[in-house]
Write a protein that binds this DNA or RNA. Sequence first.
DNA 1: TCGTCCGGCGTTTTT
DNA 2: CGCCGGACGA
Length: 678
Amino acid sequence: MISLSGLNPEQRSAAEAIEGPVLILAGAGSGKTRTITYRIAHMVSNLAIPGKNILGVSFTNKAAKEMRERVIALLGKTKSRGITLTTFHSLGVKILKKEIDKLGYHLNFSIYDTSDQLGIIREALKVYQTDKKFDHKRILSKIGSMKNRGISSEDFLSSPYFDEEEPYDLATEYAYRYYQDKLKFFNAIDFDDILFLVVELFDKYPEVAEKYSEKFQYIMIDEYQDTNGLQLKLIMGLVSKHDNLCVVGDDDQSIYAFRGADITNILEFERQFPNAKVIKLEQNYRSTSPILSLANHIIKENKQRRAKTLWSTKESNLKPILWAMGDTDHEAQVVVDEIAKFQAKGGHLGDIAILYRSNTQAQPIEDELRIAQVPYTVLGGQKFYEKKEIKDLIAYFSVMVNPYDQMALRRILNVPHRGIGNATLDKFLLYSEQNNVSLFEAMQAHPDLAGPRAGNIQDFVKLIHTYQEKFKQNSLAESCSVFVEDIKFLQYIDKQYDNAKQADRRKNDIMMFLESAERFQKFQSDQATLKNFVEKLLLQDNQDRQEDEEDEDIRKNEVTMMTLHSSKGLEFDIVYLIGMEEEILPHKKTITDGEDISEERRLAYVGVTRAREKLFMTFCKERKIYGRKVTRYPSRFLYEMDPLYVNQDRTTFGHLTEEEKEEHIKSTFASLSSLLDD
DNA sequence: TCGTCCGGCGTTTTT
DNA sequence: CGCCGGACGA
């Protein structure tokens, strides 16, 4: 029996609302994850609903992992077995691995990332041939946004998003069809296809949708405010046999419209699902009252929203503070100085976050932290699997799993150098196209096309065949490491970089890759096939990373720096929200394009609500932009929050002694001098 | 096949 | 101001 008595009344009613559509509007810090994990535990333990009938979907592997762990903590391993807690994309891949042949793909399909995608678009535009130059990325992102609206390459022409007067739309129309044809020929799908094809499958074969709907009797969707039209269609398929859908989210934290999220999904949930039960979680367990009232003030300016007012019993006399700074260097100095003092008093740096709108803002802060020798980490940055050498290895493995994968094949054909250059490649490409066979088949059947280099082709084909067998017979980790040795990959890296340090770093990446194969094998045991491993890498599911195991609960003694976007879902005792300036937050682009700035306001709201105890905000009076010094103005959001924060102009005392500073503040903010100790 | 020079541009990001 | 991508030349 799981007791729900530890939940507040709203949380409890959310956890007990099991049948029919439910919308849980979970304000920032309102115990959302706690509520939904208890809800699952309640279903399994108290209502005897079999775990295999429960599906929980989130956006990131991290969120899925957290949910899984917390459910296990409540139910124990045995009772948790069978519950599916996963991401949209993993769920999609899982379904496609069983069903994609119905759509004319093979079950061993590859998953393409952005660079593969751009490669195909580049070719498409070469074939398209016009005088006008097109931005490949813009074309690709239009294709992606069409997919996320559920519009296929055939439907684009007649969709409201196509304008025949617009050269970009004409180019996109051509490129989209070319691109989909190639993907199918390569037996590959892209990230958007993972969901798009499931939806297509559900549309064409309603019985397939029904099968999954019958399996997943109880469905929960996390971060519902971030879902797009395509995800909604997928969800509709999954609930085709029932209406046990519980969505959880906060419209005030919808900050991903730029990548297709459609806030109307959450705003109009009851219209989509009439008789839906709506539960608001408004008690915040994270922040102090002064921080929350600041947050409430800013977000209430947004017109299109579900009215919510967060409240907290955590009283405090620490008002949020706004610092006016001279320029970005000054901003960095003052912030780091404050952090250094905190550190000197024995404070834990893991309790501090520095948040910013865009990554460029991080540089001065980083410089200053380094000078002051304050340890820090910057979240974001290059993903492990995006490193060139790692991608090369993955490309090899992709070809072994799916020999139709032309992009992977072309990537590794001459890596390490084996005398197969562009001229040779072109001959096989031509043959492949003319005879409608894959590039690999062409090489396999007619190595002689390479003329004097036919032997190189034969060797290459043999290499792939040999390892296809080896991976079947031997363990994953062992095969990977033997392969790396066999192709002399480390020696190749040495030759590639004259800089020994750089070569060492890259070789080290390879070792880490091999270790991750070992860990994958350890955790997945009989499921540790090459195909599953490659797939996991592409879905960036790093859950078995050693670091993650180690600092699961305790944050390191380091300041965390990240964008406002990546801070969603996290919390810190002390938050520095830097660059509260017009043209940064709200961002210049949203201002000049005359766009709705409500998403920028939500971003500010997300930043403010990360703080538990103390919130510092800053803006600069001057800033270098593209090398030029420009006068800057405080963010309009600051005026909206006035007077809920303490205004301190650091440019007038930024470099004064402590005594002078105290004197200054006393005279300026006589009534607020109690804040000085902080 | 690689290196170099020039021009354009400059948010946010997961899978 | 600096980076990146494309074009072009050695």
